[in-house]
């Protein structure tokens, strides 16, 4: 019961009380982005059967408490764990990795991605054109709305199955 209540609460926070996916003044951008990450988890299939679903924040944490709210929630039968890390090696065992690389240079992303190559990590970033760098999902803001691009090639290479439903919503898929 508690989980349902919490879920509803989350839903209220993420959707209902922010009915428009606009980045309103009173709602932090990263609250919405945290919600996106949570929902990405729902539309993605990982090859492993682990009970946990690790969401790792690599680099400086831009979410703060906003993302802690999804820690412990259940998605597709897995318990979400929010992990903050500065070591790229630790990212290898994550299911979703939010890569906050500063400065958002291409080579930096390519180096980090190389480190986690061969793993099954759904990489997400909100740096500009990151999908071109090899990041799987790139968040961006368009007309006060958050949109996302998907590098489906990369996801497939990492044995990740992103739901077509999600793909349909992507601004750009390559």
């Amino acid at each position: 019961m508690k989980t349902i209540k919490n879920l509803l609460l989350l839903y209220a926070i993420l959707v209902a009380q922010m009915p428009v996916v606009a980045v309103a003044d009173n709602v932090s951008e990263y609250t919405i982005k945290a919600g996106f990450i949570y929902n990405f988890a729902k539309f993605t299939q990982w090859p492993d059967k682990s009970d946990e679903l690790k969401i790792c924040i690599f680099g400086k944490d831009p979410f703060g408490k906003n993302i802690d709210k999804i820690d412990g929630k259940i998605s597709n039968g897995r318990t979400i764990r929010v992990i903050r890390t500065q070591k790229i090696d630790e990212v290898r065992s994550c299911h979703i990795a939010f890569l906050n690389i500063i400065p958002p240079e291409r080579y930096l992303f390519e180096r980090a991605l190389k480190k986690i190559d061969g793993t099954h990590v759904l990489t997400v970033s909100d740096a500009r054109n990151v999908t071109e760098f090899g990041v799987m999902i790139g968040l961006s803001i368009n007309d006060d709305k958050i949109a996302f691009d998907v590098n489906h090639t990369m996801a497939l290479a990492s044995d990740l199955e992103i739901s077509a439903k999600l793909l349909r919503l992507a601004r750009e898929v390559n």
């Binding site: 959707v15 077509a164 439903k165 349909r168 919503l169």
Partner: peptide, 19 residues
């Protein structure tokens, strides 16, 4: 309906309209 779940979840009007 099944296709619109993601759009609903993401509140993606455009996506929903596309569907």
């Amino acid at each position: 309906a099944s296709n619109t779940t993601a759009a609903l979840v993401f509140k993606d009007e455009k996506g929903a309209e596309d569907i």
